[in-house]
Simulated assay, not measured.
Amino acid sequence: MAGPGRADRPKVVALGGGHGLHVMLSALVQLPVEITAVVTVADDGGSSGRLRREVPGIVPPGDLRMALTALAEPDATGTLWSSTFQHRFRGDGALAGHPVGNLVLVGLSQVLGDPVAALDAAGAIMGVRGRVLPMSAQPLDIVADVAGLDEDPMAIRRIRGQVAVASTVGQVRSVALDPVDAAACPEALKAIQEADLLTLGPGSWFTSVLPHLMLPDLAAAIIGSRAHRLVVLNLAAQMGETEGFSPEQHLEVLSDHAPELRIDSVLADRARVELPQRLASAAQRLGAQLDLHDIAIAGTARHHPAALATSLATVLGRASRSGRHR
């Protein structure tokens, strides 16, 4: 884990999970900022899902592992450990398909008795430039109300689990977490309280972004924060979760799930916005300024970390000028 922070460096808390958070962290490490990643803990698919079933009570490690690797020091040691953590066991046995890092994090959690201590220990090994924290120290489940799964198009069916929600052929109307009263990670709440910039997105909207607003004390911390709040929109709608969604619909869903949330900036790729004025109006309704930049890797639906870093620097500069950066 990184050493004591420098007072002149803005503190950035990135909220999310999976590949979206990975690209955000890959951009942030290019800037002179202190980074804390607050990661979703509701994954129930792949290796994380298998480990949740085999080791009850553990925090699913997959998204946490990916955040650590994004922040690993790019020297020989950090690169080796990052590659090792991402390496998946081969073969047909019980370990096949598990990333090494998932097993290490579960083992460290059992040895140390605390997932936060486990992440800090893993971060020290990898020379992580920042800190990775779970949104909660207990595993959570995503529950969604989905339409379009029955003959009656208006009928709502409740489905459970991150994989089921992410891959549904229906239209997700709302999401919640189970248990609804789970406690947020205290270290995450402290980081949000001290932050100069909070980022939400990019990432799977209903399963990586919105869950941070479904945990009561975490949502309260985000809503009450004095930090500049930035939403980074996805480059394309996600099959199942947000298929057919326009960029402005992503903001409307965010507002529906957290009506009290105010946003300061919305960042989107210029080429992916068909109706800029409509998106600007949707952003303004949340209190935000819209930034349209070229932040995609050409010919793909993936963000370019260096271009995203440049855009983040612009937002940080605005936050500083407006007095939000303390």
Rank of each mutant, 00 (worst) to 15 (best):
Q138M: 14
A117S: 14
M154A: 12
V172G: 03
L133S: 04
L103W: 11
G170H: 04
P99N: 10
L198F: 04
V128C: 13
D120G: 07
Q193T: 14
N102K: 05
P211C: 12
L95T: 08
T199E: 13
S208K: 04
G130L: 02
M154Y: 06
R173C: 05
D181E: 15
V180P: 07
L189V: 10
S208N: 13
D181L: 11
T199C: 15
Q110W: 08
D141M: 04
L210M: 15
V209H: 06
A164Q: 05
Q193R: 14
L177K: 01
H212C: 10
I125G: 05
S167T: 13
V165T: 07
L112K: 03
D114E: 06
T199I: 14
A183L: 09
P115D: 00
F206R: 08
L105V: 02
V169Q: 14
C185V: 07
V106G: 12
P153D: 01
V163I: 11
I125E: 12
G127M: 09
D196F: 07
T207Y: 05
L108C: 10
R160D: 13
A137P: 02
R129D: 03
A155G: 02
P153N: 02
P99S: 11
L189I: 09
D178M: 01
D196E: 15
V165E: 01
A188F: 05
D141Q: 12
I142P: 00
P202H: 14
D196A: 09
I159Y: 04
I142T: 10
V175M: 10
A176E: 08
P186N: 11
A188G: 09
D178P: 00
D141T: 13
L105I: 13
R160P: 00
G113D: 05
V132A: 00
T199Y: 12
G123Y: 01
A191V: 12
